[in-house]
């Protein structure tokens, strides 16, 4: 089943990247969400899958049963999800603000900080 998830993560990555390169704010945000989901799936699959046996120490025992799922990638993904959300929220705030200030959702037109065309450097350095 890990291989299926590998294929899924590949597809999510490809879809996310394609959307992010579209140059439109909303599609970019959608792509970002897909990409962070894909990253979590990658970590999850790489840590191996265990069906229906969560990593808890049962009452009366000192250590979990050896057959429980790998706890480590779960801990990694849990924080990654929250961080991914923080990133998305920030990107959304930026996107919204950019739209308000610049009046466009086409990313290539958002160049208030870049000069319209960088002039070719023709200055001749003197000795």
């Amino acid at each position: 089943m890990e291989l299926v998830l590998a294929a899924l993560s590949g597809f999510l990555v490809a879809a996310g990247a394609y959307l992010m390169m579209s140059g439109q704010l909303v599609r970019f945000l959608f792509g970002l969400v897909l990409l962070s989901n894909a990253a979590n799936v990658v970590i999850f699959a790489a840590g191996r899958l265990t069906y229906a046996n969560p990593p808890f120490v049962p009452d009366g025992a000192k250590i979990p049963d050896p057959s429980v799922a790998n706890a480590l990638p779960q801990a990694l993904i849990l924080t990654a999800i929250v961080i991914g959300f923080g990133l998305l929220a920030f990107a959304l705030a930026l996107a919204f603000r950019a739209y308000q200030s610049l009046g466009t959702v086409v990313m290539d037109d958002m160049r208030a900080c870049d000069p319209p065309e960088i002039p070719t450097s023709t200055e001749k350095p003197s000795a």
């Binding site: 890990e2 291989l3 998830l5 590998a6 294929a7 993560s9 590949g10 597809f11 999510l12 990555v13 490809a14 879809a15 990247a17 394609y18 390169m21 894909a38 990658v42 699959a45 790489a46 191996r48």
Partner: peptide, 19 residues
């Protein structure tokens, strides 16, 4: 699409390599 596909397939094979 070419970049995205190559990227996605590459990532999938990373997982395969790990497995």
């Amino acid at each position: 699409a070419l970049i995205a596909t190559a990227f996605g397939v590459g990532v999938a094979f990373v997982v395969v390599a790990v497995l």
